[in-house]
Amino acid sequence: MFVSAFMSWIFLTIFFTYAGETAADPGNDKGKIRISAKTLVSDSEAKYAEFTGNVRAIQGNTVITSDRLRVFYKAVSGNKQKPVSGEQAIEKIVAEGNVKIKFDNKVAETEHAVYTTKDKVLVLSGPGSKLISGNNSISGSKITLYRAEGRIKFESNSDKPVEAVLYPGENGIK
């Protein structure tokens, strides 16, 4: 079934993974995240860093481009100014505007993406949100990927239904 094949590849290289989950040893660069943008604004009171203008984030073979990327981080208990370190540091990541996520020859496209680390849920929303694998694609106005549960939910809006374009024999589709 296409959805299960689609879930397999998307969960292997999910949108935003923790550095600790991908780095098996200290010399491994897969866990490192590189972000470039025209500007970076950090707000320690609000606990976020915001990258704007031609944003490009790379971790391993995952590349995320967008107009804006905001990373919300947690503070150490009792000290709101100092962020937690390691994989527990990131609370939520929000990408906005022309969001494109490329990984393992797959692409997710949307106008708005939110990943929450606590529940490991990625939500793609906006007109034309789409997951693409080769020539196959599924689009909807809202796509929710439940990483921990291994399922994806595609939703439509009143103007346009969920649409799947499938090519039998490609990417495990029978």
Rank of each mutant, 00 (worst) to 15 (best):
M1H: 13
M7H: 10
S8W: 06
W9L: 04
I10S: 10
F11R: 10
I14P: 06
I14H: 08
I14D: 11
I14L: 02
Y18R: 04
G20S: 12
G20T: 04
E21L: 03
E21S: 11
A24M: 04
G27N: 14
G31V: 02
S36A: 12
A37Q: 08
E45I: 13
A46D: 09
A46S: 13
K47C: 11
K47N: 15
K47E: 12
E50W: 01
F51S: 09
T52C: 07
N61E: 14
T65D: 04
S66R: 02
A75M: 04
V76S: 03
P83G: 05
P83N: 08
S85C: 00
G86Q: 01
G86S: 02
A89P: 00
E91P: 00
K92A: 01
I93E: 02
E96C: 01
E96V: 13
G97H: 05
K100R: 12
K100A: 07
I101A: 10
N105D: 14
K106P: 00
T110P: 02
T110Y: 02
A113K: 02
D119I: 10
S125E: 15
S125C: 11
S129M: 07
K130A: 01
L131F: 12
I132W: 04
I132V: 15
S133E: 14
N136W: 06
N136M: 06
S137G: 03
I138N: 06
S139C: 12
G140M: 05
I143D: 09
L145M: 12
L145D: 01
Y146R: 04
Y146H: 13
Y146V: 05
R147S: 07
G150T: 08
I152P: 04
F154K: 03
K160V: 12
E163I: 10
A164T: 06
Y167I: 07
Y167L: 03
P168R: 04
P168G: 05
G169W: 02
